[in-house]
């Protein structure tokens, strides 16, 4: 019981340390917001044209649905990328504790090293969740302005999807950054992940636009399914609206495939439930790796 109280206290300490540095929080928040602004400014028209071209010739539809579905697709990209990139940026306290030797202070105290490691994971999860929710609210305000067709159930599922993505991101960050012990290395890792992750999980470009081989390779990466689940829940309401507007099922199916709501890997369509299964399965594997690394590192440090 006392160890749980110690864990709660450490999570509080890590979170407080994080938020005391306003710049760190601002930087974590600003990255996804910049992505949102860049998407809206530069890519909105491109995606609008792509959605328009997916409609049958002569089919007219309310402009708010098209504006909204393009924005929703962008939001799914931003949130799926941010769940990993923000987790990498927000894990700064774990690395700072190594740099400042605060970790030694914990080692001489009667608290289990696993408790300290879990506290970093939990506080990073909490901080990343807060940042993501801020981004989501801002994004939804934008969607409400251009065209809101997302139902309450899907909003709830979007939050669940974010939680799954954050779980994946914080575990991945915890593993990678457990090997980082300098500020420079932390910045390098965060930069590398920020620039690469969006492409390798198919967030910046629809996977369907890649060649079959690359599609299959990306299908092996669990992050791809973090994007897939968000695509589904962000686009569902808009696709329903398009169906109601008279768009044939074939065209809906084309849009779902073209924009990664339906993922096909090695010739098989991956159902939504399987996407969750793969993502959460990956989280279980990552959690096992994280625990193993913590235990091995603790043994080695002694």
């Amino acid at each position: 019981m006392t160890e749980i109280k110690k864990l709660i206290s450490l999570v509080g300490r890590n979170t407080k340390c994080y938020f005391k540095d306003k710049l760190t929080f601002f930087m974590s928040l600003i990255t996804p917001l910049i992505l949102l602004i860049l998407f809206v400014t530069f890519l909105r028209n491109v995606y609008l044209d792509v959605f328009k071209s997916a409609l049958p010739e002569g089919f007219t539809v309310n402009g708010r649905i098209l504006e909204g579905i393009a924005g929703a697709w962008l939001m799914s990209s931003i949130l799926s990328v941010s769940s990993v990139t923000v987790a990498f940026c927000s894990n700064v306290i774990m690395v700072e504790d190594k740099i400042n030797k605060t970790i030694t202070d914990f080692q001489v105290s009667p608290v289990k090293s696993t408790t300290v490691s879990i506290s970093y994971f939990l506080s990073n999860f909490f901080v990343t969740f807060l940042v993501m929710m801020c981004v989501m609210v801002i994004g939804h305000i934008y969607l409400a302005a251009v065209g809101w067709y997302i139902n309450v159930g899907d909003v709830f599922m979007i939050i669940i999807d974010c939680i799954c993505g954050i779980l994946f991101g914080t575990l991945l960050a915890g593993i990678v950054e457990s090997f980082v012990s300098t500020q420079g290395a932390l910045s390098a890792v965060a930069t590398l992940v920020s620039s690469m992750y969006g492409f390798i999980c198919g967030a910046y470009m629809p996977i369907s636009s890649f060649g079959k081989g690359l599609q299959n390779i990306l299908g092996l990466l669990p992050g791809t399914y973090g994007v897939g689940i968000l695509r589904n829940h962000y686009m569902n309401g808009y696709l329903d609206a398009l169906t109601k507007a008279g768009l044939p099922d074939d065209s809906i199916s084309v849009i779902r495939k073209s924009f990664d709501a339906d993922l096909t890997v090695f010739g098989s369509r991956i159902p939504l439930g399987a996407m969750y299964g793969i993502l959460l399965g990956a989280c279980v594997v990552l959690l096992a790796c994280y625990i193993a690394i913590v235990l091995i590192k603790n043994k080695k440090s002694k």
Binding site: S9, L10, R13, K20, N100, K101, T102, V111
Partner: peptide, 30 residues
């Protein structure tokens, strides 16, 4: 054991009270 390290290992951004509270908690003192 109580240890005073050569260089302070406390949290520079937190207040004195917060630092002492969080460190006391590690010893089960709440």
């Amino acid at each position: 054991l109580g240890i005073v390290f050569q260089n302070s290992v406390l949290d520079k951004k937190l207040t004195v009270y917060e630092n002492l509270k969080y460190r006391a908690n590690l010893y089960g003192i709440f």
